[in-house]
């Protein structure tokens, strides 16, 4: 069997020399996305960490990219895909040419600031793939809480830990009844690329991929542990890899034996202050979630 490293194109469209932090999961994510979608794709980039390598000179992202404000990256999908449709109708672009449109936004811009825009684009079922790069806080502006920040987590704006729970964005998107919703993790590149290929090759419509992306800078762990933390999130059952394909849900990875959530929380500085009771409450929540997922 050939490995993913062999099957993915060798050409890099997201170039070395970008200013992302060492150990940033965004670097690998953008490499996989560009390798999978290829040169025939257009990006609508919200203000995120990813905008720095893509949109600040010199550019690492060697594909056309629309740098857009924080809220309207889904509207970028709407506009670009409409333009492609019109240009194809006018014959300026060959009708059989497949152009993938994708938007990339952080959890803050997708779930808080751009929620209306995202929901609107999903409701209109505009043609494109939306990536929510979920590093669980506003990292680019200095680690402020977002609606996607998990409960008890430290951020610069919740120094005693965030009291509120994390917003479950993929389930909100699944409720829009769009063709495809999937959760992915940077620790599982095979799963990531398979889901992305599925979204790419689907009929026109709005597809949503939610990327769990541990941020060494904001989560306070050594930069060499990015993948390890991402993997622990899946192995502890905190982050569930699933896809909702035209309404039918499938869990793609069920850990044989879920590891205790403490394994995931302990290495991260942002959870340093957690009491045993807090940890237990997170564990209970995970156990309940999996009980619901069993059927």
């Amino acid at each position: 069997m050939r490995t993913l490293a062999e099957t993915l194109p060798k050409e890099e469209l997201f170039h070395s020399g970008h200013p992302l932090c060492p150990g940033c999961p965004g670097g690998m994510m953008l490499r996989w996305i560009t390798k999978t979608l290829g040169k025939n794709s257009i990006c609508s980039m919200a203000a995120t960490c990813m905008a720095l390598p893509a949109m600040v000179y010199p550019h690492s992202l060697e594909i056309p990219c629309l740098y857009i404000a924080m809220a309207p990256s889904p509207a970028g999908i709407t506009g670009v895909s409409a333009a492609i449709k019109i240009l194809k109708r006018k014959g300026r672009i060959p009708a059989d040419r497949k152009i993938s449109v994708f938007a990339l936004a952080g959890d803050g811009s997708a779930g808080d600031i751009g929620m209306a825009s995202l929901s609107g684009a999903a409701e209109r079922n505009d043609d494109g793939i939306f990536f929510c790069f979920d590093n669980e806080a506003y990292m680019n502006t200095g680690i402020q809480r977002s609606s996607s920040t998990p409960r008890f987590s430290w951020t610069t704006s919740t120094i005693k830990g965030k009291p509120e729970k994390k917003k479950d964005l993929p389930r909100i998107m699944a409720a829009h009844d769009i063709p495809y919703v999937a959760t992915v993790s940077v620790a599982y590149p095979d799963d990531f690329v398979r889901k992305l290929e599925k979204a790419r090759d689907m009929e026109p419509g709005f597809k949503y991929l939610h990327v769990h992306s541990p941020c060494p800078t904001g989560w306070r762990f050594p930069e060499s542990k990015t993948i390890e933390i991402a993997r622990l999130a899946v192995e502890t059952g905190l982050w569930i890899l699933y896809e909702v394909d035209h309404g039918s849900l499938k869990v793609n990875f069920r850990p044989e034996k879920r590891r205790p959530i403490e394994d995931y929380l302990r290495p991260q500085g942002r959870f340093r202050e957690l009491s045993q009771k807090d940890i237990q409450s997170i564990q209970d929540r995970i156990d309940n979630r999996w009980r619901d997922m069993r059927n």
Partner: peptide, 18 residues
């Protein structure tokens, strides 16, 4: 005939030795 490279100026970061 091909899509433009980037929406603003064009320049790859080869010289930026991270």
């Amino acid at each position: 005939s091909e899509l433009p490279i980037g929406a603003t100026a064009v320049g790859l970061p080869e010289g930026r030795e991270t």
